[in-house]
Amino acid sequence: MREQRALENERLEGVREFTLEVLRTARAVGDDELRAFLGHGYTPQNALEVVMGIGTYTMSTLANRLVRA
């Protein structure tokens, strides 16, 4: 993701694209983008896991900055 280039593995590329869309839209992913993610063989639960992963990372980062960890 840091290199901002497509991945060769199509299924992982689906996760990369969905993750970027979640971040870009402040977690308000459209129906088309969700369908595209699901089209890569993922489930709605997997979509929620992506959102939860971003949320966990964000909370951890903010907490670490607050306590100067």
Results as ranks from 00 to 15, higher is better:
3 E>R: 13
3 E>T: 10
4 Q>N: 15
5 R>H: 10
6 A>F: 09
6 A>D: 13
6 A>Y: 11
7 L>E: 08
8 E>S: 11
9 N>L: 04
10 E>K: 12
11 R>D: 07
12 L>P: 01
13 E>R: 09
14 G>E: 03
14 G>P: 01
14 G>W: 02
14 G>I: 00
15 V>W: 04
15 V>A: 04
15 V>D: 01
16 R>I: 03
18 F>E: 02
18 F>Y: 14
19 T>Y: 02
22 V>S: 03
23 L>R: 03
24 R>S: 11
25 T>N: 03
25 T>G: 05
26 A>W: 08
27 R>H: 12
27 R>L: 12
28 A>M: 09
30 G>P: 02
30 G>S: 07
34 L>P: 01
34 L>H: 04
35 R>C: 07
36 A>G: 04
37 F>Q: 01
37 F>Y: 04
38 L>V: 07
38 L>A: 07
38 L>K: 04
39 G>D: 08
41 G>S: 05
42 Y>D: 00
42 Y>F: 15
42 Y>A: 00
43 T>Q: 07
44 P>V: 08
45 Q>V: 11
46 N>Q: 06
47 A>C: 04
47 A>R: 03
47 A>F: 02
49 E>G: 06
49 E>K: 09
50 V>T: 05
51 V>T: 04
52 M>T: 09
52 M>I: 09
52 M>H: 12
53 G>W: 01
56 T>G: 07
57 Y>F: 13
58 T>M: 09
59 M>S: 11
60 S>F: 12
61 T>M: 13
61 T>R: 14
61 T>E: 15
62 L>M: 15
62 L>H: 10
64 N>R: 14
64 N>W: 07
66 L>G: 10
68 R>S: 12
68 R>C: 08
69 A>K: 10
69 A>P: 02
